[in-house]
Design a protein around this nucleic acid. Structure first.
Lengths: 212, 212
DNA sequence: AAAATATAGATAACAAAATATCTATACATA
DNA sequence: TATGTATAGATATTTTGTTATCTATATTTT
């Protein structure tokens, strides 16, 4: 066993459930609850108590036997695990419908993300701030990334433009891309890409619906 | 073995990958390609050829040995499987940033979804069509659902309002809800709910980023 | 015509994730 | 004080999903 305690790696599914737990714990916290059991959480989530228990144990949530998980402490370990207790400066490329919607969402600040700039190629978009975020021309990407030392990119642009912009981004040293364009981006191996595909969710819904 | 051939059930993960395959097959189709191998598809997707092969086999995609999967036939079986070859009339509740973004997206017609109405409680939203879709007051939900015989709801409203609206929807006979509000809706067991949580993807990104 | 090759098809092995079961303990109740 | 109970903690089992391997067969190459 090495110095940094070797914990069993946490599953993707667990990670994806963490924000949900966090939301519920915030809620309980505002009501002054100090302990919440996996049974209570199950009632709020449609998840089985045992799934919740294992998830929380895997991130090292503090607990009390027979009583439940400690609210404040669990919030802390989840935020810590996700890195949501300090802000990362991010920017968005593509101020279309979805881009504007994401810019309009203030909740990212609770999720470790601070969108400080946006980019678009369309003249009518450039120079018009959205929800207080300045919109620059895409030609300025490299210079502003460097000036502001930005590390995370949110891509909400048309599929056809995505790879080109991505190449610019990686050349500028971007290390994380949250990609909403329906393309599989090719990036150097040290760049993290998280792809969102809204059609996947719809496919799931349709499949469930058909099997009824 | 029953009359309706009992096929092995298709995994959720496979279902979520189907739209991606579909997109690529459409592409090849427009270029006139008749056969695509799993190796070719792997180059486009970052998935392993064997994953693709199994996915396509599981939906019964037609193929030719040594050559690949038949483009037209595979498109057909995937569309068939997802029910995306005929349109379901849907509506959206909550014309905020995200709701407007979804209304602005015309691609749903290729995904079996036709959004024919939207609802909001805010007077300044009601009566102003978005991308050609009429916006009604939420009070009219039940009557319009019945009049238009709507079956699928898209919820893009604040968490606090979601359960109330859902109760109205289920009472009106809605059978499928695509939920973008960060709440776990309580619904009768015959109602299908597909929950989208944008924070899950962000959590995944942050976790990957931290482990670098 | 024969040999090499790329692929679907089938099956097997492996890994990840979900679920079940059992134990120990703090607390509540009688 | 003794007994019952709800829960975390630990471990085992089952299910689901991924990856590997082997076979058969069309196609291409020699």
């Amino acid at each position: 066993m090495s110095l940094s305690t070797r914990r069993k790696s946490i599953s993707v599914q667990t990670i994806r459930r963490l924000p949900q737990y966090l939301r519920i714990f915030y809620n309980f916290h505002t009501y002054g609850r100090e302990l919440v059991s996996s049974t209570d959480l199950a009632a709020e989530t449609h998840l089985l108590p045992i799934v919740i228990k294992k998830d929380l144990q895997s991130v090292g949530a503090p607990s009390k036997r027979r009583a439940g998980f400690k609210v404040a402490g669990t919030i802390h370990v989840i935020e810590q695990f996700l890195g949501w207790n300090n802000l990362n400066k991010a920017f968005l490329v593509g101020v279309g419908h979805l881009g504007a919607a994401l810019l309009g969402f203030d909740g990212f600040k609770n999720h470790g993300l601070e969108i400080v700039a946006a980019f678009d190629t369309r003249p009518e978009k450039v120079g018009v701030p959205v929800n207080g975020v300045p919109v620059y021309h895409t030609a300025q990407l490299t210079s502003i990334i460097e000036k502001e030392n930005l590390k995370i990119a949110v891509l909400t642009l048309p599929a056809a433009a995505a790879q080109g912009v991505t190449d610019t981004l990686t050349a500028a040293g971007i290390k994380a891309i949250w990609n909403f364009a329906p393309v599989n981006l090719k990036v150097p191996s040290d760049v993290v890409v998280q792809k969102e595909d809204i059609a996947s969710g719809l496919a799931e819904l349709c499949a469930k619906l058909k099997s009824r």
